Simulated assay, not measured.
Amino acid sequence: MQKQESNGFVKLDRMDRRILTELQKNGAISNLELAEKIGLSPSPCSRRVKALMDAGIVGKTVTLLNAKTLGLKLTALIHISMDRHTPERFENFESSVKTFPEVQECFQITGSSADYILKVIVEDMDTYQQFLLGKLTRLDGVFGVQSSFVMRSVVNTTELPINE
């Protein structure tokens, strides 16, 4: 069972790591199936999963959709530069970007002339242009925008490495 270490990290035992590995493969797995896969009886398995959730290790369970089958064929990585580096400017930008359904991820970065990188998924170039000109460049403080378009995805996973 996991325990909190002095550095704030949670130390996981072998069984917890096996549970997490299986949950990352299939978040909809039943407790009975999970218990069978990891070699534990259902009741202790359920307690362990609850403890992992209570510890904040397991966030939420989601269903991953296939963007292409939904007509969302264009993925853009957008580097955003801000005109001023003030907490208020960043807070306003971030709160606005969180409301845009096209934005899948937003990272504040360093080591580049950009302040943010956005991952945006849309139908096509026309939809991207509407997003860029109608939403993104209208935000206060957006000074520069550089877009790159994904030709193909080589690695696309939500699974974190968990050493057993």
Rank of each mutant, 00 (worst) to 15 (best):
M1K: 01
M1R: 01
E5K: 11
S6K: 07
N7M: 11
F9H: 06
F9M: 11
K11G: 07
K11R: 12
D13N: 09
D13G: 01
D16L: 06
R17F: 02
T21V: 01
E22H: 02
L23T: 01
N26D: 14
S30L: 04
L34M: 09
E36N: 05
G39W: 14
P42N: 06
P42S: 12
P42V: 11
S43K: 12
R47Y: 14
R47D: 11
R48G: 13
K50H: 15
A51W: 12
A51S: 13
L52Q: 06
L52N: 09
M53R: 15
A55Y: 13
V58T: 12
G59T: 07
T61F: 15
V62M: 14
T63I: 14
T63R: 15
L64W: 12
L64T: 14
L65H: 15
K68P: 00
K68T: 09
T69G: 09
L70G: 07
L70P: 01
L70Q: 08
G71W: 00
L72I: 06
L74C: 04
T75Y: 02
T75Q: 03
A76T: 05
I78E: 08
I78Q: 05
S81H: 02
S81K: 09
S81F: 00
M82F: 01
D83L: 01
H85R: 07
T86Y: 07
P87L: 08
P87K: 11
E88S: 08
R89M: 12
E91S: 12
N92M: 12
N92P: 01
F93P: 08
E94F: 11
S95G: 11
K98H: 15
T99S: 15
T99N: 15
P101C: 13
P101V: 14
V103Q: 10
V103N: 03
V103C: 07
Q104T: 11
Q108C: 00
T110N: 09
T110H: 13
S113L: 10
S113E: 12
Y116R: 00
Y116W: 03
I117K: 07
L118E: 00
L118G: 00
L118R: 04
K119P: 03
V122C: 13
E123F: 02
E123Y: 04
D124V: 04
M125S: 06
M125I: 10
T127K: 14
Y128L: 07
F131H: 05
L132Q: 11
L132V: 03
G134E: 10
L136Y: 08
L139H: 04
G141A: 04
G141L: 01
G141Q: 00
G144I: 06
G144A: 13
V145P: 05
Q146R: 08
S148M: 10
F149A: 02
V150C: 06
M151T: 11
M151L: 15
R152A: 09
S153T: 08
T157Y: 03
T157P: 04
I162H: 02
E164L: 10
